[in-house]
Amino acid sequence: MTALVLDDLRAGYDRDLPIVKGVSFTVTKGEAVCILGPNGAGKSTMIKAVAGLVPCFGGRVQLDGREITGLPSHELVRKGMGFVPQTENIFTRLSILENLQIAAQLLPRQDRARRIEAMLAMFPDLSSRPRELAGALSGGQRQMLAAARALLNEPQVLMLDEPSAGLSPKLVGQVFDTLRRISDTGVTLLLVEQNVRAALGLTDRALVLVDGQLAHDGPTVDLHDGKLLGELFLGHRAAETRA
């Protein structure tokens, strides 16, 4: 069953200078996929375009068989797309509970309290002080609140943009343990990450983006020795994609 389809997607901030230059791939339901690539490859721009935050200039995106290309981000959330930005991914001037209440607003009234309770149970660090300002949380706890917020609406696809950015190695471990638990629940994960080792350890499949184009699409085991990845990052290897 297909969860997400990108077909010749072109996106960026200037129509004449697209950053994502015709990317196509399909993600099946329950799959955990990481998107790797050198700085400036267009990884973040690509998932932001899918999330409705960056203009799409061509191609199309489908979520669960429905066309979602160019829809605004708030409509995509309602259609089952969860997105956690790299930075500024929670409202720091609102409490932890208010952050979750905003996300829960999209659910039927009778389900809201139950889903908030479920998220607080899933992330115990948040449950001990729900009325505290989210701005008081540590970097790792902020990522957990951001993930809890995105998961609260039971998305079909959860996309995360560099969840390890700016975190200490210990916190990176915590965040990836959390992502593994999320993946184990059957949520489709799409992860942009610079921490290659952590990303390969979590996901089944890796996409490598170089200069806005897909340079590799295959099982993560292919990249474990680092040789192929090095060649792809340095541009020494021609595009190699899984059919």
Partner: peptide, 11 residues
Amino acid sequence: ENPGLAGVYGI
């Protein structure tokens, strides 16, 4: 606080 993030939250 952050209009861009508000959309991501479904607002």
